[in-house]
């Protein structure tokens, strides 16, 4: 097993441990589990950085030049931004939802498809920009997704009158709703740029005619539509709370299907 693989496995195991600790904390097992969960997540991030650094040093490529590397960067970004923002607002308990998402994306990085690299014909100055805005947008959406899951669970507990440990530990509906909305607001313009630049490619490669529209592109546009609806309907009234949360979840899932398609089949769709 190569050193990079060891680092990869170590990172994944640390994320698994952090996810388990966060989940234990949410279910109220052990008083110190929150601190340990945060520490373990910190450890996972450190291992993650080491993995990316080693991988870069060995391969000589920038970390964003293949899809699986992009996923590795995306998952790191999610974990770091979670720790950086949520700790201050006493929302660490949301780690129970965010860490599994991070873990799944990170594991996706291991699925090195046969056509991992961007075909030379597609290379352009726009490519790094396209990837960067998509990664940033998806990181915000991933956080919004985790917050939306927490909202749906919390609302369900309130409706079912199950006001025990999990209900007490999760933040209030209002906090979850406005946090989710803020995250979608941050992610949306970035993701929009990503979709526009993506479509630009598709047109240039001549694959964007209505008959030749790939499933990946389709899901990306569907995701964009979900997020656009979440934002617009909130402003226009009505899509608050549960509906907004479900819209956010569906949007992120569509985006993940699009990403998954690329990961499995290589760049370009």
């Amino acid at each position: 097993m190569s050193f990079v693989t060891v680092l990869f496995v170590a990172t994944a195991l640390a994320y698994v441990a952090a996810a388990m600790l966060f989940s234990a904390h949410l279910r109220g097992r052990g008083a110190t589990s929150e601190r340990w969960a945060t520490r373990t997540l910190g450890l996972a991030i450190a291992a993650h950085v080491a993995f990316l650094g080693t991988d870069y040093a060995l391969s000589g490529r920038a970390p964003l030049s293949t899809m699986h590397e992009t996923l590795a960067v995306l998952s790191l970004l999610i974990a770091v931004s979670f720790l950086a923002t949520m700790r201050r607002h006493r929302l660490v308990v949301l780690g129970a939802f965010i860490t599994p998402v991070t873990l799944l994306l990170f594991l996706g990085a291991a699925l090195r498809g046969p056509v991992g690299r961007v075909p030379d014909g597609v290379r352009s100055a726009l490519l790094p920009f396209h990837i960067a805005v998509n990664v940033l947008g998806l990181a915000a959406f991933a956080l919004a997704f985790a917050v939306a899951v927490a909202y749906v669970i919390q609302e369900q507990l309130l409706r079912k009158r199950q006001l025990g440990g999990i209900f007490q530990r999760l933040p209030s509906l209002d906090v979850l709703d406005s946090l989710g909305f803020r995250l979608v607001t941050i992610g949306f313009p970035l993701f929009t740029l990503g979709v526009i630049t993506g479509s630009f490619w598709a047109v240039r490669l001549g694959s964007a005619s209505p008959t030749n529209f790939s499933a990946g592109q389709g899901f990306a546009v569907l995701a964009w539509l979900f997020f656009a609806t979440v934002l617009l309907s909130r402003v226009a009234g009505g899509w608050r709370g549960r509906r907004a949360a479900i819209g956010t979840m569906l949007g992120f899932l569509c985006a993940m299907v699009a990403v998954g398609g690329y990961v499995l089949r290589g760049f370009g769709g």
Partner: peptide, 18 residues
Amino acid sequence: GNVSVSSIACDLAEKIFG
């Protein structure tokens, strides 16, 4: 956990509205 009806109502309001 509160046991009086009025403080439970207050707790719930806080869990909804922050």
